[in-house]
Amino acid sequence: MVSLPGLRSRKTVPARTPGELDAMAAAGSVVAAALRAVQAAAAPGVSTKDLDDVAETVIRQANGIPSFLGYHGYPASICSSVNDRVVHGIPTPEETLAAGDLVSIDCGAIIEGWHGDAAVTFGIGTLIAMDDALSAATKQSMEAGIAAMIPGNRLTDVSHAIETGTHAAERTYGRKFGIVAGYGGHGIGREMHMDPFLPNEGEPGRGPMLVVGSVLAIEPMLTLGTTKTRILADEWTVVTSDGSRAAHWEHTVAVTEHGPRILTA
């Protein structure tokens, strides 16, 4: 999601009731099932359109609606972002996967009006160590952000945790990662993208307060090079400006009295 002005004005991140969180978890479980099915189907020679068909089938068989399909005119049920594509890659029959590709799949589903949104990154066959580290670092950054989803924290405490998680991963893997500029997480509920925008880096202690029931989609995007991106002629696909590979991990997460609850687990 792109940063928009005026998204930090609310005093608290909107809260859902326990029943509403359960409803969101139902949508999230469908997203998780679709992502598992997509990853299982991904292999050399399989097209990204094939993967889109797999995800849509899983969602509709669960009596769900693909969140992405038709969203501001988006033409598919998943975003399939391969190698230097960061986010919003459009699946096509012509794009076929090859051994060594790094694939990020973003997926959303609506169940009874509630949204779930999640993303995973994986390799086709065995990844080279550098790409494997990139995906692992991005997941580690997401998990650091999830851990900060506790009552009393502020929005940018989550942002700072994601950034800190990225730097910890840099020490683990002995290399720098680019934190993609201008993109981040978001509120979610009856709509897929809601206020507030969640940056993937920044100073802590700012923005609306997290309270029991607050929900955010946490989604770091890291690269092996630049933080800068450009959008392709299809007006959707975001690629790294230097051609370096990118990874994207995402979960929809709620604040509870007993710790963070991953609604897309």
Results as ranks from 00 to 15, higher is better:
His193Asp: 04
Thr223His: 07
Tyr173Met: 10
Arg175Phe: 07
Glu191Trp: 01
Met209Thr: 14
Pro199Tyr: 06
Gly207Lys: 02
Thr226Gly: 13
Ile179Met: 14
Arg171Leu: 14
Gly185Arg: 01
Val212Asp: 08
Gly187Leu: 03
Thr223Glu: 05
Thr227His: 13
Tyr183Asn: 05
Ala181Asp: 05
Thr172Trp: 00
Met209Asn: 07
Tyr173Gly: 08
Glu191Phe: 05
Glu170Met: 15
Gly174His: 06
Arg206Ala: 14
Ser214Cys: 11
Leu224Lys: 06
Phe197Ala: 11
Leu210Pro: 00
Pro199His: 09
Arg175Leu: 14
Pro204Lys: 08
Leu198Pro: 00
Lys228Thr: 15
Thr223Tyr: 04
Glu219Met: 14
Asp195Arg: 11
Ala217Phe: 03
Gly185Leu: 06
Gly185Gln: 03
Gly225Asp: 12
Pro199Trp: 04
Met209Arg: 14
Ala217Asn: 13
Thr226Asn: 13
Thr172Glu: 10
Met209Gly: 05
Met221Asn: 03
Gly182His: 03
Glu191Ser: 12
Tyr183Ala: 10
Glu201Asp: 13
Leu198Asp: 01
Leu224Ile: 11
Leu222Lys: 03
Ser214Asn: 09
Gly225Trp: 07
Val212Trp: 01
Pro208Ala: 11
Asp195His: 11
Gly185Ile: 04
Arg206Cys: 09
Val215His: 04
Ala181Glu: 04
Leu222Pro: 01
Glu191Gln: 12
Gly178Tyr: 05
Arg175Gln: 15
Val180Asn: 01
Gly174Arg: 06
Lys176Val: 11
Leu224Ser: 12
Leu216Asp: 01
Gly213Trp: 00
Glu201Ile: 09
Val211Arg: 12
Met209Leu: 15
Thr172Asn: 06
Ile188Gly: 00
Arg190Gln: 07
Leu198Met: 12
Ile179Arg: 10
His193Arg: 04
Lys176Gly: 06
Glu219Phe: 01
Thr172His: 09
Ala181Trp: 00
Phe177Gly: 04
Glu219Ile: 08
Asp195Ala: 15
Gly185Ala: 10
Gly202Cys: 08
His186Ala: 07
Met209Val: 14
Tyr183Glu: 07
Ile218Asn: 03
His186Asn: 12
Ile218Thr: 08
Ile179Cys: 06
His193Thr: 10
